[in-house]
Amino acid sequence: MNHQEPFVFYTERRLVALTGMRARTLAQLVGHLGEISGSSIFYHTHQMYLAHHFETPVFSNDFALWVGGALQQEALGEKLAAVDLLSFTSIRQLREEIIRVIERHMAAGGWQDRECPPGDEFHFCRSKSFIMPTGLEARDPDEFFEILPRVSNLSLFFHFFESRLRLGHATNDFSEWLAGRGETGLAQAIDEADPYIMTLDQFKQRIIMIGKSRS
């Protein structure tokens, strides 16, 4: 990103692609996790942020929900839900961590690899993302925060989740651009905000508040 360039707000639309791969047991899940595409890992750790828009979200990734629900291995479900998505900047790292958590649990013993009830299988999907400019551009930080309330959740999703994890950026796009404009404090404050524990609506409000603290 050239930091003298304006910030271009992008948005995305998503089509769900199916793999036909399914798991009935924990061993099958972890086996597939090593083989499936990165876009499948991304989909199952992020889809709920776009699919649900409720006041009180119960965010967890699909792996955690399935292990805790269909396999009734609640302890492992909790461990998977606690995987800190914000601490990874690539899908590769995230995949390795999820596999590591499951394998460590399996190695510890004291559990049985039972099959889920029929109809509760885990189905691996992928995310096919279409990225496009919104037409909104900010030339400087003032304009950036002025535009922010008009930016959609899908745009936020792209700049915070997709761009960082799938395009391999070190931080979110907002922080990267603001830091390039000398706004290191704001960049850091946004970088430290955790988008994974609130709805995208709430997260947008959080960033708007960070912007207000500047003036």
Binding site: G38, S39, K128, F130, M132, P133, R166
Partner: peptide, 18 residues
């Protein structure tokens, strides 16, 4: 509409549209 677009990009998971 997205399926129509996807058919043009069968091997990409991230597709940039202008």
């Amino acid at each position: 509409i997205l399926v129509m677009l996807a058919l043009d990009h069968p091997n990409e998971d991230i597709i940039r549209l202008s």
